[in-house]
Each structure stands twice: as C-alpha cells, then as structure tokens.
Design a protein around this nucleic acid. Structure first.
Lengths: 132, 132
DNA sequence: CGGGATCCTACCGGATACTG
DNA sequence: CAGTATCCGGTAGGATCCCG
C-alpha cells in the first residue's frame, strides 16, 4: 500500500506517511467483498450476534471469508468479539460506535451513487457505442 | 459481483438487482489502487491533462494500470477523453461534473476516517496485545 | 506519445477437510 | 460451533516489448 491521494487531501497534507497509509487502508477495506454487508447486518441487529447467525444473513459468504472479515473489523475496532468457553463454543460479535459511525459516513456516498445511477448508465451506454 | 448490502440500504430495497450491482461496482471501484489519486489529480488541474502529465503526477503508476484506470473513469462518465490525430498523438483527459461530484462525496468519508485515526490506532494496538 | 499484447507474480476468495 | 489448514482457479497489477 503506497502513498495515494497525496496532493488531493490538502487538509491532511501534514499527515505522517504511516498514518496516511492506515487511513487509506481503513477506507479501501470498505470495498472488500463482504465487509459492508457484514457490518450492516450487525448494525441492523444492534445486539450481539453469533458467528453462524451472521453467516446466515450474509448470504453466500464462506466461513473463511467471514472469519477474515470479522477479524479485520475487530482489529480496527468496528466490531467487538466475545468468546464464551462453553461446549459447543459460542462467539458473539457486536458492532461498536466506531462501526456505526463508519456506516453512517459510507451511506451518503452510496445514496449519492444510487441517485446518479441514470447518469452512470447513460455514460456506460455511450461508452459502449463508441467502443463496441 | 453479487448482491451485497441488501438489507442494509432500506432506501434502495426497491432497486432492481442489476442496478444495485452497478451502484456497488461504482462505489467499490473507488477503492481501486490508483483510481482516486488519478481522479484527484484531474480535479486539481481542472483543465485537460495529457496522459503523460497524469502519469507524472500519479507517482508509481504503470502505463498499463493508468490506462485501465482512465478507461474505467471514462466508461463511468467521471472523465472525458479527447484524442487528437496528430503525430505524435495527443490524448487529453478532463474530469466531469459527475467526477467532481464523486470526489466531493468521497471526501467526507476520508476526513472522518482521518479524524478518527487515533481510535483506529488504539484499536489496532489493543488487538495486537490480545493476539500478539 | 499513448497505448496494446504478453508474461509473470502475489493475493483474494471459494471449496473442502479437519479440530478443540 | 467456530474456527484453522490446505488446495486451487481467477484476477489485479508490475515489467517488458512492440506498434501506429
């Protein structure tokens, strides 16, 4: 991961490279295949959710990918993980305030995109005409 | 590309699957390695920029990746491409209103992330302590 | 100059099998 | 149940060469 956006975000020009990389990592992770879906499932629930319940709601995800996704979310403080030493084991995930804040700040971008869908569709049609 | 976020964006529940996929594609592309940097370079300039000028400013990008990035941007109407049949050839790229709008709507997310960097750093430190 | 074509590598994510 | 370990195909992206 390198030093993107450098000149763009003048506000953050003073940001140390290392921290800029972190910020970049956080934001780009949001585009990971299952991340936002997983996060939004937890947000919807509001209360703790077991691994298997999450997996049911995030349709199509593999355990491997869900585990990886939840690890990332936990690592960045967007989700908390609590393990109960029972048999069979129980693990519960809960979205944090930070996680809710993230969703809150992603949504406007998503809504704007949806509102401009016709622009995007038109652009793609024109492009396909030009190129074939 | 599948049917993510399904339940999350209640506002868009009525969205046809195909259009949801498009919206998802548009937004997740923003995390592509060179896309936002390229777009921001064009936004900064404001006026048309030649391929090689862009490549200078987006430090580290290969021609292949820059070409691919610009094609995507052009395809989605975020950038226009004008070719001049000269020798040697000249190609100019210009950001569109749609492109500027996109940047405008990505920036709040970026700023929020930067403002919460210490939260993320703290979360990662704690995580590393727990896990090692 | 602005790419296209090709080769190569790293990594992502799915499928499957195994385990505390 | 909630993972970990392993294999594997597809793809993103860098490097290089070539062409109008």
């Amino acid at each position: 991961m390198e030093n993107h956006w450098k000149m763009w975000n003048a506000e953050c020009a003073a940001l140390e490279p290392e921290r800029e990389i972190l910020a970049l990592e956080i934001t780009t992770q949001m585009a990971d295949k299952w991340l936002l879906w997983t996060l939004s499932v937890l947000a919807e629930e509001g209360s703790p959710l077991r691994f298997s319940r999450i997996m049911e709601r995030v349709e199509g995800v593999s355990q491997k990918s869900l585990t990886k996704t939840l690890r990332q979310l936990e690592r960045d403080g967007l989700v908390t993980r609590e393990m109960f030493p029972e048999v069979p084991p129980r693990v519960e995930y809960t979205i944090t305030e930070l996680g809710l804040g993230m969703l809150e700040h992603v949504r406007p971008l998503w809504l704007w995109t949806v509102q401009n869908l016709e622009n995007f569709e038109r652009a793609r049609r024109k492009y396909d005409e030009r190129r074939g």
